[in-house]
Amino acid sequence: MDTMVGKQSIQFQRAPHIVSAASIVGKKEGEGPLGSQFDQIEQDPMAGQNTWEEAESALQKKAASMAMEKMPAGLPPVRYLFSGDLLGQLIATSFGVMDLKLPLFGLYGACSTIGEALMLAAMTVQGGYSETVLALTSSHFGSAEKQFRFPLEYGGQRPLAATWTVTGSGAFVLAPQGGKARISGATPGKVVDFGLKDSLNMGACMAPAACDTICQHLEDFGRQPSDYDYIITGDLGSVGQTILLDLAKERGYDLSEKHLDCGMLIFDSETQDTHAGGSGCACSAVTLAAHILPKIEKNQWKRVLFVPTGALLSTVSYNEGQSVPGIAHGVVIEHA
């Protein structure tokens, strides 16, 4: 059985394995530092579709299909799917996975969604409710900008604190065994709100939630940052990273030598004009699939704390003057 640890964490006694993973990204992401590590680079931003939203759905379908094709022989077919995206009513997901004919648990954790999906998939496998479960998410620069900010044609100048929404999709299949990486623990995050209202500075909005989850995780498990090769957040970017390090130090944890951020890994901010870094549900998902997971599987990294971060805003809440709360979900991934 799973064990409840501390105030809000979970330790998996029989840690589910990540048996396959897939990453598909857009042209800009393929031109970044991790370009050679992705499974597929989609050169057409429309992915052969008519709208940005349909393109994002197509990316989800491709990534999910690819991950299932890469499953080790002998495993039963995927039984359940946990997935979500940034769009209203999860339309990228619902239209993207429709043809897969899998029972769907639709999730919304903003850019932290893959953390939530992996956590729930691990709980499902560990609990014996399915031998194989698929965790999936996506984002698209065009669809996200269209929904959350302003039309690109408006020509508004992006502030330096802004991040660039990653176009892509990441997928992971979990099973009781059969992989070289396993999920040994998890710390579900709480909604944390410091009252910030700048939707173009999401790193600052999400950093308090990242700090809360990371510090609670360390307290729950009685660990120090040195017990991990790296503590990797989802998409705080350079601005959010600075805030996270300061907040964590106030709580007695020095993360400066152990912290990485997917948003800072996926783009070269100097040559690609992405300002603070990358963001979007796909940011942490494709970075995990293409860059982090292979290092764990090869035993180059023995244990990481993977902490996707999300800004919980909508066009409605923002236009009504509400703040931008954040959430972060922590997942412990170890070499199996």
Rank of each mutant, 00 (worst) to 15 (best):
residue 85 D to R: 05
residue 86 L to Q: 11
residue 87 L to G: 00
residue 88 G to V: 04
residue 89 Q to T: 01
residue 90 L to V: 11
residue 93 T to C: 07
residue 95 F to R: 15
residue 96 G to R: 10
residue 96 G to Q: 07
residue 97 V to N: 05
residue 98 M to A: 14
residue 98 M to F: 12
residue 98 M to H: 14
residue 99 D to P: 00
residue 100 L to N: 03
residue 100 L to Y: 08
residue 100 L to M: 12
residue 101 K to V: 11
residue 101 K to D: 15
residue 103 P to R: 03
residue 104 L to R: 06
residue 105 F to N: 14
residue 105 F to Q: 14
residue 105 F to I: 15
residue 107 L to H: 01
residue 108 Y to N: 13
residue 110 A to D: 14
residue 110 A to Y: 08
residue 110 A to W: 06
residue 110 A to C: 08
residue 111 C to K: 02
residue 111 C to D: 10
residue 112 S to N: 15
residue 112 S to Q: 06
residue 112 S to I: 02
residue 113 T to E: 11
residue 113 T to K: 09
residue 113 T to G: 10
residue 114 I to C: 02
residue 114 I to L: 11
residue 115 G to E: 09
residue 115 G to Y: 05
residue 116 E to N: 14
residue 116 E to Q: 14
residue 117 A to C: 09
residue 119 M to V: 00
residue 119 M to P: 00
residue 119 M to I: 04
residue 120 L to D: 06
residue 121 A to K: 02
residue 122 A to F: 07
residue 123 M to C: 15
residue 123 M to K: 15
residue 124 T to K: 10
residue 124 T to D: 03
residue 125 V to L: 09
residue 128 G to L: 09
residue 128 G to H: 09
residue 129 Y to C: 04
residue 130 S to V: 00
residue 131 E to Y: 00
residue 132 T to M: 09
residue 134 L to M: 04
residue 135 A to S: 13
residue 135 A to C: 10
residue 136 L to F: 06
residue 137 T to R: 06
residue 138 S to H: 03
residue 139 S to C: 05
residue 140 H to C: 08
residue 141 F to T: 10
residue 141 F to I: 05
residue 142 G to L: 14
residue 144 A to K: 05
residue 145 E to N: 15
residue 145 E to K: 12
residue 145 E to D: 13
residue 147 Q to V: 03
residue 147 Q to N: 10
residue 147 Q to H: 12
residue 148 F to S: 01
residue 149 R to S: 08
residue 149 R to V: 08
residue 149 R to G: 06
residue 150 F to N: 07
residue 151 P to V: 01
residue 154 Y to C: 07
residue 156 G to K: 12
residue 159 P to V: 03
residue 159 P to Y: 05
residue 159 P to I: 01
residue 159 P to T: 02
residue 159 P to G: 02
residue 160 L to G: 00
residue 163 T to F: 01
residue 163 T to G: 02
residue 164 W to S: 14
residue 164 W to Y: 15
residue 165 T to L: 03
residue 168 G to T: 09
residue 168 G to V: 11
residue 168 G to H: 10
residue 168 G to Q: 11
residue 170 G to D: 12
residue 171 A to K: 08
residue 172 F to Q: 08
residue 173 V to G: 04
residue 173 V to Y: 10
